[in-house]
């Protein structure tokens, strides 16, 4: 049993890392195709990618959309979770359901719905419209994480603060938010990574300025190229850095 377990674990790691390893390895390919045989190590694809103005612009757009939409989702989710965790509003179960609902719907449907809406109302597609879509998908995530984190301990501390004379904004700023620092950070980082990677909403809801996944998509259309590997590797590097930061800053300290 023991040996089988370790074998299974090893095979699982191989399966999980196989595509990433191939991706990264062939980003250094000294040739035109990112497939075997490996012709030697070269950094020229990275040079090409880093010198590509469109790609770098897309990178900036992705970063902007991810941070701004995550911030909005975080604030809205925090306020709603705070209200529903503490005030016994009529229909609060229904409201929780409504706020979680976008989680159960494909991104494609969210995107198509918004595309219809923007077409109908004549709103021009831009990074902002994609950002709106990203808030829609990240709001349930932020809400769910924060709502789950608001235990009785939290509620009692808020009650105590109110009892001692704090106004509602003071309760939120001085007690609730600091006590929820870890889940807030977790929700924010998760939102950022999801928004950063998201393709279909960004693809359907942007027009001239696009985000990085959309830019990569258009690179794919011209066939396999080590340049795509290089971009993919860089994106992976950024995501992994975010995740490791989250791990170190949030989960390590939470222990």
């Amino acid at each position: 049993m023991r040996v089988l377990s370790w074998l299974y674990l090893a095979l699982a790691y191989v399966f999980v890392f196989l595509p990433v390893a191939v991706l990264v390895a062939f980003s250094f390919q000294d040739g035109r195709l990112p497939v075997p045989p490996f012709k030697g190590v070269s950094f020229r694809w990275y040079e090409k990618v880093l010198g590509d103005g469109d790609l770098m612009a897309a990178l900036g757009h992705s970063f902007l959309v991810a941070v701004v939409s995550s911030l909005i989702a975080l604030v809205l989710g925090f306020l709603a979770a705070h209200a529903l965790a503490r005030v016994a509003l009529p229909g609060s179960a229904l409201m929780r359901g409504v706020l979680i609902a976008p989680m159960t719907v494909s991104y494609l449907i969210v995107a198509l719905g918004l595309l219809n809406l923007f077409n109908l109302t004549g709103v021009r597609l831009s990074l902002w419209t994609a950002g709106i879509g990203h808030v829609v998908i990240n709001l349930p995530l932020c809400f769910a994480i924060l709502y789950a984190a608001m235990g009785d301990h939290q509620k009692n501390a808020e009650r105590a603060a109110r009892d001692l004379g704090a106004a509602e904004w003071q309760v939120l700023a001085l007690v609730s938010a600091p006590m929820l620092a870890m889940p807030l950070a977790a929700a924010f980082f998760l939102s950022v990574t999801f928004s950063w990677d998201e393709f279909i909403i960004a693809f359907l809801l942007t027009r001239f300025d696009v985000t990085l996944p959309v830019e990569i998509w258009s690179m794919l259309k011209s066939g396999l190229s080590p340049a795509t590997n290089a971009v993919g590797s860089l994106v992976f590097l950024v995501s992994v850095t975010l995740v490791i930061l989250l791990e170190i800053l949030v989960f390590r300290r939470a222990k």
């Binding site: 009692n156 501390a157 009650r159 105590a160 603060a161 009892d163 006590m179």
Partner: peptide
Amino acid sequence: APQHRPTTTVFQDYALFPHMTLRDNVAFG
């Protein structure tokens, strides 16, 4: 509301603010 009454409460689970020092906790009101 509680904050406008001449009362304060000691809660069963104390409800101390975990992110503040004892001084800041006591000085909060």
